[in-house]
Design a protein around this nucleic acid. Sequence first.
DNA 1: GAAACCCCTG
DNA 2: CAGGGGTTTC
Length: 626
Amino acid sequence: GPSEKGLPQGATALSKCLFSQDLDPNSGLLPPLSQACSCLPEPCMDGERSPAPPEKGRDSPFAWSPGPSSSFIDPDWFGDENIQAKRARVETIVQGMCLSPHTPAPAPSKARARDGACCPGKARERKRKQSLPMQQGPLKPGPAGDHGSRKGGPRVREQLHQLKQQLKHLQKHILRAAEPRDTAQDAGGSETDKGPLRAQQRKGYGRRPRALDSDHYQGSRGDHPEEEKHRASEAEHQSEEPRFLPCGAQALLEILRKELTGAVSQAVDSVLQKVLLDPPGHLTQLDRSFQGLVPEGRSEPSPPERGACKDLFPLATLPRRAQPQTGVLLQNFSLAKSLDPPRYPVSLRMIPIPCQGPPANCPLTAPSHIQENQTLGQLLGPRPRGHWSSSLPHDSTPQSHRSSESGLRPWGAVKLRPSVLSQQQYALPFASPRLERLPVLPSVKMEQGGLQAVPDVLPFPSLHTQEGLNPGHLKKAKLMFFFTRYPSSNLLKAYFPDVQFNRCITSQMIKWFSNFREFYYIQMEKFARQATTDGVTNPKMLVVLRDSELFRALNMHYNKGNDFEVPDCFLEVASLTLQEFFRAVSAGKDSDPSWKKPIYKIISKLDSDIPEIFKSSNYPQELFRN
DNA sequence: GAAACCCCTG
DNA sequence: CAGGGGTTTC
């Protein structure tokens, strides 16, 4: 039978919860199931697009990232174009170094060769997507495209080899040079190398063998006969050769140095802040102060609405510690409306991670002054929702705030453990580097800095597309489960661009999700049965909140370490699943051997869109590894 | 009949 | 989580 862990407490809490069923059932506080259902995808993704097929965005010019450095959704990207281009070069070269001798070409060409070999349709698809980012800026396809294999192959390989040597050399120097430097490296440094680097990009980018497909090549220089084209470019190379390497070396040096020093200083800051916060009692103080923000009807000055809320919905507005801890909780969706962020302007200032407090849903409107609290934001919690979705409408409809009354979440203290540092790496992929300048995303900024300090100072990780699945992929898949329970293989392919999919890999990943579902449904059934034995009669009383036991179980399974903020849409789906199981069990349908199938069918329609950032991250899966 | 899913097991 | 057998679906 199912494990009964924690049930005594849960049962007690549940019985408390049952008292609340005396609430007027006609008060309209609990919307019909169908209504709740129809709103599900909204909180986590663009509501307009929620029913669209998962693959819908893939033709977007920026939906696919061919390499570690492109794919930008934000128009502001062009401001950092140079930085990104530099990063691209560095990573590409490092990538080449890390590849085995039998895979001489960088990832893009690898992918291309693979595609061409097995399925032409896919190859075309990728080609189209791949070529788009290349069109940005001055990056012209060079002669090494497909023609390199005919004539320029050896040469290209030789150049690549030179680059590798150069980089090895640089690595040694930089790792040594970066340490003593202060953080005074600023825009000036990057400005100086802009010009040369751009020139280098123009000519140097295309010299990587088969990095660009021939279609693209011909498209941009179609007016030249192939031979001539090649010869001209060859000459171009030779004239550029002497300048190219030193120039590139300088650029590499500069960018690496900047990255390293920045990361180190961030790390120092981060550690310092932690140390400062470490004194015993500090955290509890913080906790207390945050708890104070939760309406208790006493000392905290509260807007008029709050008092009204409290009177109307006493249970739901209780502070966390007073709330039932079981997997089931009374919740009325109307309540959320009364907790709209704008009504707590003062509280907002005091809450580093807005989602943690009652005014939970205003991360995108967080003012820049919140930077003061960056450290708290970093230490105390997961990223506010919306970090991964720049297109989040962030309306103020009740649906998008429904879970706001979940109150404080118990992950604050955990974040303070030093050992958790390594877990935080998973946070990074959801923030593109250019976001670090945006004041509205304080925790992202800090986390990124801190994160880079840890893994990036170490020897360069490999960035190549790899054959198998690694633990990072598993981790990412688990997080994706929060959005989709039934991903199609196409969706998986779209969201794991660094994985070379074959039949085996695909089925393995499908199997992963099957296992995820299995655990998920087992939990649901367990808690639904518990609810029935505890005497719950109204399924709508069963709501999964962030502080419920059920949520903890799920979170522990899919998000061990709390390094990802579970999207609200998952809570909605989980609540519905729980309710469906409850209905079925309490109706005795579980005598039917296939009684779960209708439930599965319902839940399978509740998949949400996965945030684009999951696939368009600049660090595809690197930070998911380990 | 392959693929997908479910269920069980280790 | 992976493997394997059974079942359903297309």
